[in-house]
Structure formats: C-alpha cells, structure tokens
Amino acid sequence: MHGTVDGFSYGLVTPLVAYLMACLGGALGLRCTTRALLVTQSWRPGWLALGAAAIGSGIWTMHFIAMMGFSVAGAPIHYDKPMTYASLGVAITMVGVGIFIVGYRGATGTALFTGGTITGLGIASMHYLGMAGMRFNGRFEYNTLTVALSVAIAMAAATAALWAAGQVRGFLWSVGASLVMGLAVTGMHYTGMAALSVHLHTAGAPTQGDSPAGLLAPMLIGPLAFLCLAGVVVMFDPLMVMGRPDRAPERTGRGAPARPAHPVHTVQRPPQRPRRKVAAHESRTPQNR
C-alpha cells in the first residue's frame, strides 16, 4: 500500500531554516579552508579539520532540520540513533578527505576534481544513510535516475565550493559562495526526497507516535553547539574573516600557497657619510708640488 508523504508539514519554515544552516556550515568551512591555504604546514591540518567538521555538521544539521517537516500519514517515524550519528561521521570524514586533498594539492586540476567528487559523495552518503536510519511501518523505494541526479548535484556543489575556497578573494566572495553552496546542498536534499516513494505494510493498524521535531531536536543540540563555537573562532580571527594574507604567500609544494613561519627581518646598515670630492690640486703630494 502506498503511503501519503508530506515533506512540508511546517510549511516553508523547515526548508528556509535548513537552507540557512547549510549556508552557515558552508561559510565556516570555506573560511577555514581559505585560512589553511594562508598558513604554514604545521597549522594547516588543524584549519582543514575544523573546516571539514563545520561543513559536515552544517550539512547534517540541514538534513535533519528539513526532515522535521517530513511525515508519512498513518505511520509514525522513529530514528535509529547509531545509524543517525554514523551519517554525521561519514559526512565529516568524507568531506575532510576532499578538503585535505585540495588543501595540500591546490584547488586546480585533478586535485579539485578528486576532492570535489569525494566531498560530493560524502554529502550524498550522509543523506541516504540518514534516510536508512528511519524506522516506520513500511519501506522506502527510490527512483534510480532521480537519485543519480541528486548525487551529481552534490558533486557539482562540492567542487564549486572547494574551487571558491581556493581563490582567497575575501569575505564577500565567500559569502556568495556559501549561499550558492547552501542552495545546491538543499536542492540535493529535496531532489533526493523527490526520488522517494513509501510503501506501507498492510499488517498492523495505524498508530500514533512522537512528532519528528520531538525526536530530532535533542540530536541537533551537539552539532548546533559546534557550529556556534566555530562561528566564535571565525569572529575572533580577522584574517580568516577577510581572507587576506598579512603578507604575500610563498609557493610551496605542488601549487599550494603558504606563508613563511616567521617574518623576514632585514639588517639595517648605518648610514654612511657621503664622500667629499677632492680637488685636483689637493690630491697632489708634497713631492709633486
């Protein structure tokens, strides 16, 4: 028996809030990735890891805020917590792999394509693993072509975002890139939901249960707190906000810019007294006079 699906139980509230969370996670992650390209090798892993966690948490939070508006008539939904949190781990890990590739190889050519592909697959894996963690009296079925389209959107969005992070063009550029990334990630989510159809089991009468908001709200506290903490880090690092190096970066490795560990100090020589021109008659020796 086909189930009646409602993806907008709260109207436009959940899509808009989900979009804002995707933008927030994307903005923080892009700023951290940009900052990683401006520091020395010793600091780079920390900034890249923070960027991966920010993007992964933002995407995961976006997904489950959007799922607060998802319901199936006559079939209360529950969530398997281990699988739900596993989807968060998959998102952070795969996004991290893509970001580290771009952070060390540069946002061009093969490295950009590889990093964007892995990051996009991480976004899609998080989505469908999170959907697999839903429990109700029925099963999901997906349209293969629509699923493939959603994965392609995720890969294109991730590649564009990593390319933007490598440009290092300042705060407004990153804001625009994060808005585009949020739109693409949210579009990927609802494209994947459009591929979904629900089949309910005929055995058992419809039952009542907790609302999706009541089930998901406690799970979102941790990732939301982390995003707020990452936002504080951004606020207290003006260089990361503006995306401008305090000195010209040097080329190290294979195309990745990095700043020198210490500023180069030049030795100031004391000023020399100008030489006085000696007249021809003064240069004569007493013997020549």
Rank of each mutant, 00 (worst) to 15 (best):
A152K: 03
G122A: 03
L28W: 04
L30W: 05
R139N: 05
A165P: 07
W47S: 07
L216R: 03
P271D: 12
T114N: 06
A73Y: 02
G122Q: 03
Y104S: 08
F236P: 00
V278L: 15
G192Y: 07
C228V: 15
G209P: 02
L220I: 05
T93N: 00
E141F: 09
H189I: 08
A49D: 01
S174Q: 11
A54F: 10
L229P: 02
A54E: 08
S174K: 06
A154T: 03
P76F: 06
G204S: 07
P263I: 03
Y79I: 06
A156I: 15
V180S: 13
I99P: 00
G89P: 04
I77R: 00
H2E: 14
Y85L: 06
R276E: 12
A205Q: 15
V95P: 02
G51A: 09
V90S: 05
P249V: 10
P245W: 03
G3V: 02
L50S: 13
V185T: 13
M219C: 04
D210S: 07
H265A: 15
L224N: 14
M188N: 09
P45A: 12
A184L: 14
A91C: 13
F226Y: 15
G109Y: 09
T117F: 14
G26Q: 08
A205G: 02
S9D: 02
Q268Y: 10
S9P: 00
H78L: 03
A279N: 05
P286S: 11
V234Q: 10
S125A: 15
S197Y: 00
L172Y: 13
V278T: 15
C32D: 06
M188S: 06
A258F: 01
V180M: 14
A184K: 01
G209H: 01
G176V: 13
P15K: 05
H127E: 07
Y79L: 08
G103M: 12
S150T: 05
M1W: 06
A91R: 06
G130F: 01
M21Q: 05
Q41E: 15
R275P: 00
M193L: 12
M67V: 03
S178A: 15
I65Y: 09
M219S: 04
T61R: 06
V267T: 14
V5G: 02
S42G: 08
A258L: 03
V151T: 11
V232F: 07
L30E: 04
L215S: 07
I123G: 01
A261P: 02
L224S: 15
A54W: 10
A261V: 12
R139V: 08
H2I: 04
T207F: 00
Y128D: 01
A132Y: 02
T144G: 04
G231E: 13
